[in-house]
Design a binder for these strands. Structure first.
Lengths: 202, 202
DNA sequence: CATTAACGATACGGGACGGTTTCGTATCGA
DNA sequence: TCGATACGAAACCGTCCCGTATCGTTAATG
């Protein structure tokens, strides 16, 4: 958010208040257009305004430009994280791996690939991306540590490398359709089992 | 190529022949601009023409538009593949994994991320991408088969999943800088060793 | 009811591009 | 030498977009 209406204890400014519906509609319109295949920079303020049923001025009243609006919209997209049950390390890992690129919001999986170039270009987007995935990495890290504590996993493994091993295959398949012959349904289980076999305590 | 000058046995058309220098310069200019951070659709024919020291008409004489030109330019980018030595399966795998996203042309690694959205949008780009990586997958597949023949690797593993396990971590790190704490130098060795430990014959 | 500010709609100037055409020039084969 | 063709440069037009300004209208406060 880049404006003032957010202060809850504001001394109630006079005049007509900003429409919360408009806020929602604008963000939703932007995400919808992206999910429908529009590129980030093919996306225009005009198109967003038209889709949201809103005047352009209403958008410029809230955000400085396309960049600020998108950063804001993407923040709301991330959705909720999968929560591992804590019973079996293997099951928890399969759950986490299967959740990669599977956000609650179905638009997310279509939008993500569009952001790859941005992540490399803009430090802001890079930070945003890291902020989104950092808690998920932390979740996986904790499950792996639990596996070590339980004696299932060797204690001398490199946690970060292991997480990359679990995440990488799923990510390239979901984002890039890297290998058309791979089955996304069974991939999480296959990945987890193979990696576990490589890092299990003997 | 989308025109006629390419026929080697052509009955030598009259008039001034097309400049090979211009061909080169146009393609190089397009790749340079992409590598410098321009987005695919921020890239304009005008910019390419200016950079190549060429008139726009010269470009339109050869290609139907930006799309055709880019497809053509990317085809020339792929560079040569790493060739495994054939001595040690482990060393060969490390070489192949280390070569992911490391093309001869240094521009390739900067351009690749820009193509991710395109791969999802355009069947042409998807095919192009698959054509580029298919031979590399085949190379890795053969090394893994050798490992099976030598009795190093279990015979019942899923080759495609194994390749995804080897490729994924390296790819997300090189393309996405997925985890800033990972060391790209040592990653190939760590990945190969962990995966090998998971699929080795016992 | 008066005030105040946000609303949707619309118009505007400025700029970027795409694609085409027209220059005068350069380079080939005949 | 001559005709044919490609060349780089420039001009042109139509389209799209941005960012701002200005309508009359609407919704809250007091």
């Amino acid at each position: 958010m880049s404006d003032m209406t957010s202060n809850a204890d504001a001394p109630r400014s006079p005049g007509r208040p900003r429409s919360v519906r408009a806020d929602e509609a604008i963000v939703e319109a932007a995400l919808d257009l992206l999910a429908e295949g529009s590129t980030i920079e093919a996306l225009s303020i005009e198109a967003i305004a038209a889709r949201a049923g809103v005047g352009k001025a209403t958008i410029y009243r809230r955000w400085a430009g396309k960049e600020a609006l998108l950063l804001d919209a993407l923040r709301r997209l991330k959705g909720v994280m999968a929560q591992p049950e804590g019973h079996s390390v293997r099951d928890d890992l399969i759950l986490l791996v299967g959740a990669i690129g599977r956000n609650v919001d179905p638009r997310a999986s279509k939008i993500m690939p569009c952001l790859v170039p941005e992540v490399n270009r803009s430090p802001d987007h890079f930070r945003l991306y890291q902020n989104i995935i950092a808690p998920r990495r932390q979740l996986m890290r904790e499950v792996l540590r639990r596996g070590i504590d339980e004696g299932l996993i060797r204690a001398d493994i490199d946690l970060e490398v292991t997480m990359a091993l679990l995440t990488g295959p799923m990510l390239i398949q979901r984002v890039l359709r890297w290998n058309p012959e791979l089955d996304e349904q069974t991939l999480p289980e296959q990945v987890v089992d193979t990696v576990l076999a490589g890092i299990q305590a003997r």
